[in-house]
Design a protein around this nucleic acid. Structure first.
Lengths: 179, 179
DNA sequence: ACCTGAACACCGTTCAAGT
DNA sequence: ACCTGAACACCGTTCAAGT
Protein backbone atom coordinates (compact mmCIF):
# COMPACT_ATOMS: atom_id res chain seq x y z
CA UNK A 1 0.00 0.00 0.00
CA UNK A 2 2.50 2.62 1.17
CA UNK A 3 4.50 3.51 -1.92
CA UNK A 4 8.13 3.88 -0.94
CA UNK A 5 9.83 7.10 -2.05
CA UNK A 6 11.94 6.25 -5.11
CA UNK A 7 15.61 5.58 -4.47
CA UNK A 8 17.66 8.54 -5.63
CA UNK A 9 21.20 9.73 -5.05
CA UNK A 10 19.90 12.62 -3.03
CA UNK A 11 17.83 10.41 -0.76
CA UNK A 12 20.79 8.09 -0.28
CA UNK A 13 23.11 10.95 0.72
CA UNK A 14 20.62 12.47 3.13
CA UNK A 15 19.80 9.16 4.74
CA UNK A 16 23.50 8.41 5.14
CA UNK A 17 24.05 11.80 6.75
CA UNK A 18 21.14 11.19 9.07
CA UNK A 19 22.61 7.83 10.02
CA UNK A 20 26.02 9.37 10.74
CA UNK A 21 24.56 12.23 12.77
CA UNK A 22 22.58 9.78 14.84
CA UNK A 23 24.91 6.86 15.26
CA UNK A 24 28.37 7.96 14.14
CA UNK A 25 30.48 7.29 11.09
CA UNK A 26 31.55 3.89 12.34
CA UNK A 27 28.02 2.56 12.06
CA UNK A 28 27.51 3.68 8.46
CA UNK A 29 27.64 0.45 6.49
CA UNK A 30 26.16 -0.26 3.11
CA UNK A 31 23.90 -2.90 4.64
CA UNK A 32 22.61 -0.64 7.40
CA UNK A 33 22.16 2.19 4.92
CA UNK A 34 20.15 -0.20 2.80
CA UNK A 35 17.97 -1.04 5.80
CA UNK A 36 17.31 2.66 6.48
CA UNK A 37 16.30 3.09 2.85
CA UNK A 38 14.15 -0.06 3.01
CA UNK A 39 16.08 -1.59 0.19
CA UNK A 40 18.78 -4.22 -0.22
CA UNK A 41 22.30 -2.82 0.15
CA UNK A 42 23.13 -3.80 -3.38
CA UNK A 43 20.49 -1.47 -4.79
CA UNK A 44 22.65 1.48 -3.71
CA UNK A 45 25.29 0.51 -6.24
CA UNK A 46 22.90 1.27 -9.03
CA UNK A 47 22.87 4.95 -8.05
CA UNK A 48 26.46 5.15 -6.81
CA UNK A 49 28.41 2.77 -9.04
CA UNK A 50 31.65 3.41 -7.16
CA UNK A 51 30.13 2.23 -3.94
CA UNK A 52 31.06 3.45 -0.50
CA UNK A 53 34.01 5.50 -1.74
CA UNK A 54 31.67 7.59 -3.86
CA UNK A 55 29.14 7.86 -1.06
CA UNK A 56 31.74 9.30 1.32
CA UNK A 57 32.93 11.71 -1.35
CA UNK A 58 29.38 13.02 -1.75
CA UNK A 59 29.00 13.42 2.00
CA UNK A 60 32.13 15.55 2.17
CA UNK A 61 30.95 17.72 -0.69
CA UNK A 62 27.56 18.13 0.95
CA UNK A 63 29.00 19.35 4.25
CA UNK A 64 32.29 21.05 3.38
CA UNK A 65 31.44 22.99 0.24
CA UNK A 66 30.18 26.30 1.56
CA UNK A 67 32.08 29.20 0.04
CA UNK A 68 31.92 32.74 1.38
CA UNK A 69 28.80 34.29 -0.13
CA UNK A 70 28.92 37.65 -1.88
CA UNK A 71 27.91 40.52 0.36
CA UNK A 72 28.65 43.91 1.79
CA UNK A 73 30.92 44.94 4.63
CA UNK A 74 34.63 44.78 5.34
CA UNK A 75 36.63 41.63 4.65
CA UNK A 76 36.88 41.07 8.38
CA UNK A 77 33.15 41.33 8.98
CA UNK A 78 32.29 39.05 6.09
CA UNK A 79 34.83 36.43 7.10
CA UNK A 80 33.71 36.57 10.70
CA UNK A 81 30.07 35.84 9.99
CA UNK A 82 30.89 33.26 7.33
CA UNK A 83 33.27 31.45 9.69
CA UNK A 84 30.61 31.28 12.36
CA UNK A 85 28.16 29.67 9.98
CA UNK A 86 30.74 27.29 8.57
CA UNK A 87 31.66 26.16 12.05
CA UNK A 88 27.99 25.57 12.87
CA UNK A 89 27.66 23.40 9.80
CA UNK A 90 30.77 21.39 10.63
CA UNK A 91 29.65 20.92 14.24
CA UNK A 92 26.14 19.93 13.14
CA UNK A 93 27.63 17.12 11.09
CA UNK A 94 30.58 16.45 13.34
CA UNK A 95 30.51 12.79 12.38
CA UNK A 96 31.66 13.72 8.88
CA UNK A 97 34.72 15.64 10.15
CA UNK A 98 36.98 12.58 10.04
CA UNK A 99 36.23 12.34 6.34
CA UNK A 100 36.66 16.04 5.62
CA UNK A 101 39.94 16.17 7.43
CA UNK A 102 41.21 12.90 6.12
CA UNK A 103 40.21 12.14 2.58
CA UNK A 104 41.83 13.72 -0.39
CA UNK A 105 38.93 15.51 -1.95
CA UNK A 106 40.20 18.39 -4.05
CA UNK A 107 36.81 19.81 -4.94
CA UNK A 108 34.81 20.47 -1.81
CA UNK A 109 37.34 22.15 0.47
CA UNK A 110 39.29 23.69 -2.36
CA UNK A 111 36.30 25.72 -3.52
CA UNK A 112 35.73 26.94 0.02
CA UNK A 113 39.39 27.81 0.57
CA UNK A 114 39.54 29.52 -2.78
CA UNK A 115 36.57 31.72 -1.94
CA UNK A 116 38.32 32.95 1.21
CA UNK A 117 41.47 33.58 -0.76
CA UNK A 118 39.57 35.53 -3.41
CA UNK A 119 37.88 37.67 -0.80
CA UNK A 120 41.22 38.56 0.77
CA UNK A 121 42.72 39.24 -2.62
CA UNK A 122 39.87 41.54 -3.55
CA UNK A 123 40.26 43.30 -0.22
CA UNK A 124 43.73 44.36 -1.26
CA UNK A 125 46.15 41.66 -0.04
CA UNK A 126 48.83 40.28 -2.30
CA UNK A 127 48.33 36.83 -3.79
CA UNK A 128 50.76 35.33 -1.28
CA UNK A 129 49.17 37.06 1.70
CA UNK A 130 45.75 35.90 0.60
CA UNK A 131 46.96 32.29 0.24
CA UNK A 132 48.53 32.32 3.69
CA UNK A 133 45.45 33.97 5.16
CA UNK A 134 43.02 31.48 3.67
CA UNK A 135 45.20 28.60 4.81
CA UNK A 136 45.45 30.02 8.31
CA UNK A 137 41.73 30.58 8.66
CA UNK A 138 40.72 27.20 7.24
CA UNK A 139 43.38 25.50 9.32
CA UNK A 140 42.04 27.19 12.43
CA UNK A 141 38.44 26.31 11.58
CA UNK A 142 39.04 22.65 10.82
CA UNK A 143 41.50 22.20 13.65
CA UNK A 144 39.36 23.71 16.37
CA UNK A 145 36.20 21.94 15.25
CA UNK A 146 38.11 18.69 15.25
CA UNK A 147 39.39 19.46 18.76
CA UNK A 148 35.85 20.21 19.88
CA UNK A 149 34.60 17.00 18.36
CA UNK A 150 37.03 15.18 20.57
CA UNK A 151 35.93 17.08 23.65
CA UNK A 152 32.29 16.30 23.09
CA UNK A 153 32.91 12.84 24.42
CA UNK A 154 34.57 13.78 27.67
CA UNK A 155 32.15 16.66 28.20
CA UNK A 156 34.58 18.83 30.08
CA UNK A 157 33.80 22.31 28.77
CA UNK A 158 30.32 23.92 28.67
CA UNK A 159 29.04 24.82 25.21
CA UNK A 160 29.02 28.54 25.94
CA UNK A 161 32.65 28.52 26.98
CA UNK A 162 33.47 26.67 23.80
CA UNK A 163 31.69 29.29 21.72
CA UNK A 164 33.51 32.11 23.48
CA UNK A 165 36.82 30.38 23.04
CA UNK A 166 36.13 29.81 19.36
CA UNK A 167 35.16 33.44 18.78
CA UNK A 168 38.15 34.76 20.71
CA UNK A 169 40.49 32.54 18.70
CA UNK A 170 38.73 33.54 15.51
CA UNK A 171 39.26 37.21 16.31
CA UNK A 172 42.91 36.45 16.90
CA UNK A 173 43.17 34.86 13.49
CA UNK A 174 41.17 37.59 11.77
CA UNK A 175 43.34 40.26 13.30
CA UNK A 176 46.33 38.44 11.89
CA UNK A 177 45.02 37.97 8.37
CA UNK A 178 42.44 40.70 7.81
CA UNK A 179 43.16 43.43 10.31
CA UNK B 1 67.29 -21.13 13.82
CA UNK B 2 66.63 -17.38 13.68
CA UNK B 3 65.17 -16.51 17.06
CA UNK B 4 62.30 -14.07 16.55
CA UNK B 5 62.38 -10.95 18.69
CA UNK B 6 59.92 -11.45 21.54
CA UNK B 7 56.48 -9.96 21.05
CA UNK B 8 56.11 -6.84 23.19
CA UNK B 9 53.72 -3.94 23.25
CA UNK B 10 56.47 -1.64 22.08
CA UNK B 11 57.31 -3.81 19.11
CA UNK B 12 53.62 -4.07 18.21
CA UNK B 13 53.16 -0.27 18.28
CA UNK B 14 56.26 0.40 16.23
CA UNK B 15 55.42 -2.23 13.65
CA UNK B 16 51.90 -0.85 13.37
CA UNK B 17 53.29 2.65 12.87
CA UNK B 18 55.66 1.37 10.23
CA UNK B 19 52.77 -0.32 8.48
CA UNK B 20 50.69 2.86 8.52
CA UNK B 21 53.56 5.04 7.32
CA UNK B 22 54.20 2.66 4.47
CA UNK B 23 50.74 1.58 3.40
CA UNK B 24 48.25 3.89 5.06
CA UNK B 25 45.84 3.53 7.95
CA UNK B 26 43.32 1.66 5.83
CA UNK B 27 45.65 -1.25 5.43
CA UNK B 28 46.35 -1.69 9.13
CA UNK B 29 44.44 -4.82 10.08
CA UNK B 30 45.08 -7.12 12.97
CA UNK B 31 45.81 -9.96 10.58
CA UNK B 32 48.28 -7.98 8.50
CA UNK B 33 49.90 -6.63 11.64
CA UNK B 34 50.25 -10.21 12.80
CA UNK B 35 51.94 -11.11 9.52
CA UNK B 36 54.42 -8.23 9.90
CA UNK B 37 55.22 -9.47 13.39
CA UNK B 38 55.52 -13.06 12.14
CA UNK B 39 52.83 -14.18 14.51
CA UNK B 40 49.15 -15.06 14.37
CA UNK B 41 46.87 -12.01 14.72
CA UNK B 42 45.37 -13.45 17.86
CA UNK B 43 48.70 -13.31 19.67
CA UNK B 44 48.45 -9.50 19.69
CA UNK B 45 45.47 -9.69 22.03
CA UNK B 46 47.67 -11.11 24.73
CA UNK B 47 49.63 -7.83 24.86
CA UNK B 48 46.75 -5.50 24.03
CA UNK B 49 43.68 -7.10 25.62
CA UNK B 50 41.36 -4.40 24.28
CA UNK B 51 42.37 -5.18 20.74
CA UNK B 52 42.45 -2.70 17.91
CA UNK B 53 40.86 0.08 19.93
CA UNK B 54 43.73 -0.03 22.37
CA UNK B 55 46.27 -0.27 19.57
CA UNK B 56 44.97 2.91 17.94
CA UNK B 57 44.95 4.69 21.29
CA UNK B 58 48.62 3.82 21.75
CA UNK B 59 49.46 5.07 18.28
CA UNK B 60 47.87 8.44 19.00
CA UNK B 61 49.74 8.74 22.27
CA UNK B 62 52.99 7.83 20.54
CA UNK B 63 52.64 10.54 17.88
CA UNK B 64 50.61 13.32 19.49
CA UNK B 65 52.04 13.53 23.00
CA UNK B 66 54.89 15.98 22.62
CA UNK B 67 54.60 18.83 25.09
CA UNK B 68 56.62 22.03 24.85
CA UNK B 69 59.97 21.25 26.49
CA UNK B 70 61.41 23.52 29.17
CA UNK B 71 63.91 26.03 27.79
CA UNK B 72 65.11 29.58 27.53
CA UNK B 73 63.89 32.38 25.30
CA UNK B 74 60.67 34.32 24.89
CA UNK B 75 57.31 32.57 24.78
CA UNK B 76 57.10 33.33 21.09
CA UNK B 77 60.51 31.86 20.29
CA UNK B 78 59.86 28.73 22.29
CA UNK B 79 56.44 28.17 20.76
CA UNK B 80 57.76 28.81 17.28
CA UNK B 81 60.47 26.18 17.45
CA UNK B 82 58.27 23.70 19.27
CA UNK B 83 55.49 24.12 16.69
CA UNK B 84 57.92 23.44 13.86
CA UNK B 85 59.02 20.19 15.46
CA UNK B 86 55.49 19.15 16.30
CA UNK B 87 54.41 19.73 12.72
CA UNK B 88 57.34 17.64 11.47
CA UNK B 89 56.28 14.79 13.71
CA UNK B 90 52.66 14.97 12.57
CA UNK B 91 53.69 15.10 8.91
CA UNK B 92 56.12 12.21 9.39
CA UNK B 93 53.26 10.05 10.61
CA UNK B 94 50.57 11.67 8.51
CA UNK B 95 48.70 8.38 8.33
CA UNK B 96 47.90 8.69 12.04
CA UNK B 97 46.34 12.16 11.64
CA UNK B 98 42.84 10.80 11.03
CA UNK B 99 43.05 9.14 14.42
CA UNK B 100 44.49 12.14 16.24
CA UNK B 101 41.88 14.44 14.82
CA UNK B 102 39.03 12.02 15.20
CA UNK B 103 39.23 9.85 18.27
CA UNK B 104 38.38 11.09 21.67
CA UNK B 105 41.63 10.61 23.48
CA UNK B 106 41.83 12.96 26.44
CA UNK B 107 45.39 12.08 27.41
CA UNK B 108 47.70 12.57 24.48
CA UNK B 109 46.58 15.89 23.03
CA UNK B 110 45.43 17.28 26.34
CA UNK B 111 48.91 17.07 27.78
CA UNK B 112 50.31 18.81 24.75
CA UNK B 113 47.65 21.54 24.77
CA UNK B 114 48.11 21.99 28.50
CA UNK B 115 51.85 22.53 28.10
CA UNK B 116 51.22 25.35 25.62
CA UNK B 117 48.65 26.87 27.94
CA UNK B 118 51.06 26.70 30.88
CA UNK B 119 53.79 28.35 28.89
CA UNK B 120 51.50 31.24 27.94
CA UNK B 121 50.26 31.53 31.51
CA UNK B 122 53.81 31.69 32.81
CA UNK B 123 54.63 34.30 30.22
CA UNK B 124 52.07 36.58 31.82
CA UNK B 125 48.74 35.97 30.05
CA UNK B 126 45.56 35.52 32.00
CA UNK B 127 44.13 32.03 32.35
CA UNK B 128 41.47 32.78 29.72
CA UNK B 129 43.96 34.28 27.26
CA UNK B 130 46.23 31.29 27.69
CA UNK B 131 43.35 28.87 27.05
CA UNK B 132 42.30 30.71 23.91
CA UNK B 133 45.91 30.95 22.76
CA UNK B 134 46.61 27.25 23.23
CA UNK B 135 43.40 26.35 21.46
CA UNK B 136 44.19 28.69 18.58
CA UNK B 137 47.70 27.37 18.10
CA UNK B 138 46.76 23.68 18.36
CA UNK B 139 43.79 24.26 16.09
CA UNK B 140 46.02 25.89 13.51
CA UNK B 141 48.62 23.12 13.76
CA UNK B 142 46.20 20.21 13.44
CA UNK B 143 44.09 21.93 10.82
CA UNK B 144 46.93 22.90 8.51
CA UNK B 145 48.66 19.55 8.79
CA UNK B 146 45.37 17.86 7.96
CA UNK B 147 44.96 20.18 4.98
CA UNK B 148 48.48 19.34 3.85
CA UNK B 149 47.80 15.66 4.22
CA UNK B 150 44.96 16.06 1.78
CA UNK B 151 47.13 17.97 -0.67
CA UNK B 152 49.85 15.35 -0.65
CA UNK B 153 47.69 13.21 -2.87
CA UNK B 154 47.00 15.76 -5.55
CA UNK B 155 50.56 17.05 -5.39
CA UNK B 156 49.75 20.58 -6.37
CA UNK B 157 52.03 22.65 -4.15
CA UNK B 158 55.82 22.17 -3.85
CA UNK B 159 57.10 21.25 -0.39
CA UNK B 160 59.04 24.46 0.01
CA UNK B 161 55.99 26.60 -0.68
CA UNK B 162 54.07 24.57 1.88
CA UNK B 163 56.77 25.16 4.48
CA UNK B 164 56.77 28.89 3.77
CA UNK B 165 52.99 29.03 3.96
CA UNK B 166 53.01 27.13 7.24
CA UNK B 167 55.62 29.40 8.78
CA UNK B 168 53.89 32.55 7.58
CA UNK B 169 50.58 31.36 9.03
CA UNK B 170 52.33 30.31 12.23
CA UNK B 171 53.80 33.78 12.60
CA UNK B 172 50.30 35.18 12.12
CA UNK B 173 49.00 33.02 14.91
CA UNK B 174 51.95 33.69 17.19
CA UNK B 175 51.55 37.41 16.72
CA UNK B 176 47.94 37.02 17.77
CA UNK B 177 48.55 34.92 20.86
CA UNK B 178 52.09 35.69 21.99
CA UNK B 179 53.05 38.98 20.49
C1' DA C 1 16.18 0.38 -15.72
C1' DC C 2 16.03 -0.94 -11.19
C1' DC C 3 16.36 -4.15 -7.57
C1' DT C 4 17.36 -8.88 -5.32
C1' DG C 5 19.95 -13.23 -3.58
C1' DA C 6 23.72 -15.84 -3.29
C1' DA C 7 28.47 -15.86 -3.04
C1' DC C 8 33.47 -14.27 -2.29
C1' DA C 9 37.19 -12.47 0.11
C1' DC C 10 37.93 -10.02 3.67
C1' DC C 11 37.35 -7.96 8.77
C1' DG C 12 37.74 -7.96 14.48
C1' DT C 13 37.21 -10.88 18.12
C1' DT C 14 36.09 -15.13 21.29
C1' DC C 15 37.26 -19.25 23.00
C1' DA C 16 39.14 -23.74 23.65
C1' DA C 17 43.32 -25.88 23.00
C1' DG C 18 48.21 -26.50 22.74
C1' DT C 19 53.13 -25.76 24.76
C1' DA D 1 52.50 -17.20 30.29
C1' DC D 2 52.29 -17.04 25.57
C1' DC D 3 50.67 -18.39 21.18
C1' DT D 4 47.60 -21.06 17.73
C1' DG D 5 43.33 -22.79 15.02
C1' DA D 6 38.80 -22.90 14.30
C1' DA D 7 34.72 -20.43 14.46
C1' DC D 8 31.30 -16.39 14.60
C1' DA D 9 29.20 -12.35 13.18
C1' DC D 10 30.10 -8.93 10.54
C1' DC D 11 32.02 -6.07 6.23
C1' DG D 12 32.18 -4.20 0.83
C1' DT D 13 31.48 -5.77 -3.55
C1' DT D 14 30.56 -8.85 -7.89
C1' DC D 15 27.60 -11.11 -10.60
C1' DA D 16 23.78 -13.59 -12.39
C1' DA D 17 19.05 -13.41 -12.07
C1' DG D 18 14.52 -11.49 -11.60
C1' DT D 19 10.80 -7.79 -12.91
Amino acid sequence: MSQRAPLTRERIIETALHLIDGQGLGRLTMRRLGDSLEVEAMAIYHHLPHGKEQLLEQLIAYVAAQPVPPGAGTARERLRSWAGGYRDRLVEHIGVMPLIVTRRNPGALLATTQSVQDLLRTAGRTEAEAAVGAHTLLGYLLGTVALEGREHATETTPDLDRDDRFLAGLDNVLTAIAS
